[in-house]
């Protein structure tokens, strides 16, 4: 497993994409640091990038990578190694690469110009979202036999979680505006990893004061041990489930 991971990781880290992605993130971070004068503004701007761009790139890259490596995966399958190991080595290589890009691209400017706890949370959220969307992408890849279709599904999942779902939430909130909605919205947040990551980030910044009663409710929840445990557990489930199902399908899939 570690051997396979080592080689898969070596290959992916040397790819042009890893470098371009890291440099892109670093440039974004540097320009944000140059423009904004205080850390909470930096956090907010970086968060916007994190919420929109990171899942998109993770989804598209992971799908493309899976299909570009399909022949290599087939070659691996003809070797005396377990299927699950072949799959997990590819998966972890992609997640590690995406995470390292975030840690370096965003982390180095932070080391240079300072960071606070919200930015550390930001990095964690970025890594988690990368893992979640890599999972979606791999699931889409193993379920289809066509690269275009798989990318389509990955993109659809991205659009769903970053746009459609929130529209749906807005509709629900609007329809039931007369009822106390705090617990319901909390539940809705849990059902979307992007929203959950975003709210966790917002709670780190003291702008949660702008969020009124709902904000105060969220703040109370997410600052309790129970709340953090539930949020962490939910995010862990979001990382595990797509990957787990992708692994199951992969083990039964014909190549």
């Amino acid at each position: 497993m570690l051997k396979l991971l080592k080689y898969a990781l070596y290959d992916i880290l040397k790819s042009r994409f890893a470098i371009i992605y890291t440099v892109f993130l670093a440039l974004v971070a540097i320009s944000i640091y140059q423009v904004s004068d205080d850390l909470s503004k930096v956090s907010l701007s970086l968060m916007n990038i994190m919420i929109m761009i990171v899942p998109l790139i993770s989804a598209v890259f992971a799908t493309t990578h899976f299909y570009n490596n399909l022949e290599f995966i087939e070659l691996m399958l003809a070797q005396p190694v377990k299927r699950s190991q072949v799959f997990l080595s590819q998966l972890f290589a992609v997640i590690l690469m995406l995470s390292l890009s975030i840690l370096f691209g965003f982390g180095l400017p932070m080391l240079l110009w300072g960071a606070d706890s919200s930015l550390i949370t930001l990095l964690a959220v970025g890594v988690i979202l990368s893992a979640v969307f890599t999972g979606f992408a791999f699931l889409a890849s193993v379920l289809t036999r066509d690269k275009a279709k798989a990318i389509g599904i990955s993109l659809a999942l991205w659009i769903y979680f970053s746009l459609v779902y929130d529209g749906f939430v807005l509709y629900i909130i609007y329809s039931f505006a007369d009822y106390p909605l705090e617990k319901a919205t909390l539940g809705l947040v849990m059902l979307n990893p992007v929203d959950l990551g975003r709210i966790l980030m917002l709670m780190q910044l003291d702008i949660s004061a702008l969020m009124g009663y709902t904000g105060a409710f969220f703040q109370k929840f997410f600052s309790s041990n129970m709340g953090l445990f539930i949020a962490g557990g939910t995010l862990a489930l979001w990382m595990l489930f797509p990957n787990f199902f992708a692994l199951r399908v992969f083990r039964k899939r014909d190549f």
Binding site: Y7, D11, K14, S15, L70, E71, L75, A78
Partner: peptide, 18 residues
């Protein structure tokens, strides 16, 4: 059992950067 099989695929594709 696959350690006793040598397989040569029709078109071998390998990691580009390896």
């Amino acid at each position: 059992y696959r350690s006793s099989i040598g397989y040569m695929p029709q078109i071998g594709r390998y990691p580009q950067n390896m």
